[in-house]
Nucleic acid binder design. Structure first.
Lengths: 358, 358
DNA sequence: AGGTACGGTGGGAGCGCTCCCATGTGTGAT
DNA sequence: ATCACACATGGGAGCGCTCCCACCGTACCT
């Protein structure tokens, strides 16, 4: 009883979405000419172009992405690889802001954004395959860990890619990062200017390059002020609220005389604040508190938290811009030998947002 | 001087990514057989299957998405349409959580997620075209406004779609929503059980169906408790912090005797809290405060905010599940006439999270 | 007048896959 | 032994596009 379908998806030839060929027939020109008009080639006369555009409008023609990708060997899509579900990426405020920035940069182009989730090493391995299989023209990597195999795989496969947050000082891929070093330095300088001298810090996971840089900035600021860097004032944590609580507890027992705390994330600052309050320390009267990220948490904390703002959205924008550039340059000169791009290392400035906690 | 390239992207035939044909040659079978193995067809002998799988592994074969999409007229991709940059979607906590849920639901499948940004009506119009142009098999719509043209366009184009948060009681598309009515009711019941009797509410934009439902729940709970619904206790706002402040100011001047406030979002509750504090009202001693969303803001507010938790991630998961189902069912019986799906209206329960503010 | 150049154009070939039809090949029923 | 039938398999056709080459006409040179 089943009626035979006319092949491929069963959409009838007539009445389905129009094809290039149909537009060509309508405009009374050849397929090649329509293609040239669609792709904005200059080698078309004004008359012809107008005729084709009219036909396109009348038929409501939209190019078939799959066919184009197959023929042209490019997809007009980039992937954002989301480390999932662990990691601070899904936490405030990274995720939304990065994507927001990517969206802004992509808005003026025809490029689509593919979201890809991969947490475990095995998944990320498999992912590299998929990425290479013509799925996307380039890849945006965020929040990569030092031991992540994906960036190296991607580099080997010679896929255009940009990472956020370098894995080390010598990141081989194009990268965009915020100035963690200067950000931390500014935070400490601010505390010093407020007359604080026994400034502790709660660090992030030090295998994350950015966390290390924040610690470097902390030390540099103290040294520049001729203060000794007292290692009892440095406690490593892991970017979590619980970690912030544990670190603060440890700090209070080690150095009950501290008068300021610089936490390498707002979330950790929030944890620290709880402990400080339980210990009866007033903020900022007894202990000044500064965070990092300037997330919603900072704005809504009580008292509102002084924090180092990272231009996350701008990072997303810049990452995308650099990736599109890289893709364009790869497409331009086809020879694989000449694939020696200047791999840019962009570092964006941070900004200290002073609130009542310091 | 430019060397001629071997067509299409310039990848050399040898050494490039392997094709189906090459796998077939390697395994000593025909193209069709390899295709059957790749797609898990049962009509392949065990011997042959093993041989093909070995060849696939040796060559590291991965199917070309574009070719598959072109031939099979399906993309194995769905789009999440993000209303951008306005709207509460990009705000806490919606965005991350929804995507998280979508990612979870997609993890077990081969389906990819495309993120599409479109705010202005014109963009959304254009978007419908693109969506129809074989780019995706289905669409996830979030945070649609009552006057959004996109849902109707999508319905006309007969594209599988699921919306989060119905636009009205009679949503024509498949939808997933949280139980705004019962959530609000639970919040008010809780306040009543705490002995509060002059309970005000700050509503969201009432052209958003969910906001209306929360207000309905507020009224119903009061009525059920034999309390009159006093309209001077109801102030409409717009889901923003500023709106919350303005509404609270208005409420305090209208009804200085109020003893509880139910805000239809945490963000508005946060605004209300600022005003209450400035007015010297203690929370919860003088005025109890309850929010909606159970976002990070609620947890970090001072005092921590009692709030109605929406299962956002689960919503993302369910939306995706329903969409995949719908796509599968459309693919199953090709006849467009039989495209009469049971358009499900899924409503997920909310949960009151009681904290110190009430 | 003949040649040269070049902008403009049509359409063949091919991208890598899926679908389906035709063709084996083995099994059990007659 | 013969027929029927299911199962397994090979490969042609075609999805809608881009790329490129061949071709045409016109304008310009010598």
């Amino acid at each position: 009883m089943t009626m035979r379908q006319p092949r491929a998806g069963g959409r009838a030839r007539s009445g389905g979405r129009p094809t290039l060929e149909e537009v060509a027939a309508r405009a009374g020109v050849g397929r090649g000419t329509v293609s040239r008009v669609i792709n904005g080639s200059p080698r078309v006369s004004e008359r012809t172009r107008a005729a084709v555009e009219a036909a396109v409008a009348e038929l409501g023609y939209v190019p078939n992405t799959a066919a184009r990708a197959l023929a042209a060997n490019r997809t007009d899509a980039i992937a954002l690889v989301v480390p999932e579900p662990e990691g601070r990426f899904f936490a405030e405020p990274y995720f939304s802001d990065i994507i927001h920035g990517v969206g802004v940069a992509l808005a003026e182009t025809e490029v689509q954004l593919l979201l890809t989730f991969a947490s475990k090493a095995r998944e990320r391995q498999r992912l590299a395959q998929y990425l290479a299989a013509q799925r996307v023209d380039g890849v945006l990597l965020v929040s990569v860990h030092a031991d992540d195999p994906l960036p190296d795989l991607i580099e080997q496969l010679d896929i255009p890619a940009v990472v956020s947050g370098r894995r080390s000082a010598s990141e081989p891929l194009t990268s965009v990062d915020s100035d963690n070093y200067e950000g931390a330095k500014a935070a400490i300088d601010h505390l010093l200017s407020r007359g604080r001298t026994r400034i502790a810090t709660i660090t992030g996971r030090l295998d994350v390059y950015g966390a290390q840089r924040r610690l470097d900035g902390y030390r540099a600021a103290l040294t520049a002020a001729d203060l000794p860097v007292d290692e009892t004032l440095v406690v490593p944590a892991d970017f979590t609220e619980g970690g912030g609580r544990r670190a603060m507890t440890e700090l209070l027992s080690r150095r009950p005389d501290l008068d300021a705390v610089f936490a390498a994330s707002d979330v950790m600052a929030s944890g620290a604040r709880q402990i400080l309050r339980e210990a009866g320390r007033r903020i900022p009267d007894d202990v000044a508190l500064v965070g990092f990220d300037d997330s919603a948490i900072a704005r809504h904390m009580d008292p509102p938290l002084t924090s180092v703002r990272q231009p996350i959205e701008e990072m997303g924008r810049e990452m995308t811009r650099l990736l599109l550039e890289e893709i364009a340059s790869v497409g331009a000169h086809h020879s694989p030998a000449s694939r020696l791009l200047a791999r840019e290392q962009l570092v964006l400035p941070t900004e200290l947002v002073v609130r009542a906690s310091s």
